[in-house]
Nucleic acid binder design. Sequence first.
DNA 1: AAGTGGTCTAGACCACCTT
DNA 2: AGGTGGTCTAGACCACTTT
Lengths: 245, 245
Amino acid sequence: MRLKPNIPMAIQASNVLRQQLRKKRFPDNRLPSEHTIAADLGISRGTVRQALAILEQEGIIIRHQGSGTFVNPHVLQIDARVDVAYEFSELIEAAGFTPTIDTVEVKRLPADAEVAQQLAVAVGAPLLVIHKVFLASGQPTIFVMERIPVALIREAYDDNELHNPIFTFLQERCQVEVDYILSAIIPSLVEGDLVARLGVAAGQTCLQFNEVFYSPSNQPLAQATVFFRDPIIRFHALRKMSQMR
Amino acid sequence: MRLKPNIPMAIQASNVLRQQLRKKRFPDNRLPSEHTIAADLGISRGTVRQALAILEQEGIIIRHQGSGTFVNPHVLQIDARVDVAYEFSELIEAAGFTPTIDTVEVKRLPADAEVAQQLAVAVGAPLLVIHKVFLASGQPTIFVMERIPVALIREAYDDNELHNPIFTFLQERCQVEVDYILSAIIPSLVEGDLVARLGVAAGQTCLQFNEVFYSPSNQPLAQATVFFRDPIIRFHALRKMSQMR
DNA sequence: AAGTGGTCTAGACCACCTT
DNA sequence: AGGTGGTCTAGACCACTTT
């Protein structure tokens, strides 16, 4: 097995192993030892450990001192981890549906107090507001409201670009990179506008994420409110107990 | 600064740094360089990197190649991360309230189909079922239903022990260790029993976690259904975009 | 006793940012 | 140019599990 130079070996190794895991290349659910993997891939044991740490962090392998490294089938089958960033289309695809975008509405509106605070702009500052609906095999499933301060936009754009993920727009037209997203997880009631958007009866529940996008230098870049139709997209969390403090 | 032997240096170093962060020991939000920390703590740079990786994973620091390591105040102030395991009392305390346990009911019931499947036991197998209500400064806030297969219990116990976290019971009376918890995150409606348990009007929403506890050898040990009263306990997720694949 | 993962070291080189 | 973090190596010793 050869790895390419210039791309971190640990990342490549983790990708190789992840693919092999998904293809069930380890029939007894047991991975080779660190020493063996290192020899196979022609890298040092430290780098193998780095690769395995990535997979362990994702929860898809479990390691036991003195015993070995094993596949975790319970986690491997999960499609939506709450601590992993996906594009909405990916999410729908992973859940086994065909993703399409239905509606895109674009407006310019002044920031209200809450959003202004989250984005660190003045109340009333102009925002580019984008509404999208994602369908899973024809069924409305995700409704998003994204808000970007107009002041951030540095280049002319076409409304059609706004179908793309917000990351792309921020990168290309605002020349800023999204480093991380902080989301509040809120159980929400389907009512008002949402009934039509998600095609769900009023009084049903859905999952709401209030998200703020941050740059590498910790500046808020955009804000989004997302509604996931519940049984279709269901998020999971993995919590490890082992972390001693 | 001296570290104790026999406890991993990286863990100790991360604890030292986390405490300093919380106490705002770095007024310009900038941490010392890896080299400096290594010299200060008398450990190697590799070990310092391991410690910093823990803090970066928690999201409370951000690192920039060529530039330095910085505190992330946005994340530092969050009290309930969805990917971190807490005891319920800790959670309530972190939210700024005084935790108490109100009700503990203990029953023995047969497993229904869904729970039986999650716990990998036969339908109808006897379960120890524990219901608890946690109060935050007197207000009902968390309602938990925990289910343990009776077959796992290896020692006599007193019902009073069941006030303790389920981890403790599994450890002491079943001689099994909880390694990780897999939770489905569900937006839920307050109705029926929940109205009384959480002291919330019917028709309000709350956050539900369907949790399965697993041993290091990947065996399901227990199942829990947890309801969090929404605005009081609100979970957050941190998603990093940097992970290339 | 042998094999496994866990920890730690010391040093090298690289990529990136600041000065 | 010098400092920072990012990557990788080779080797050592330890703790734990299996044989």
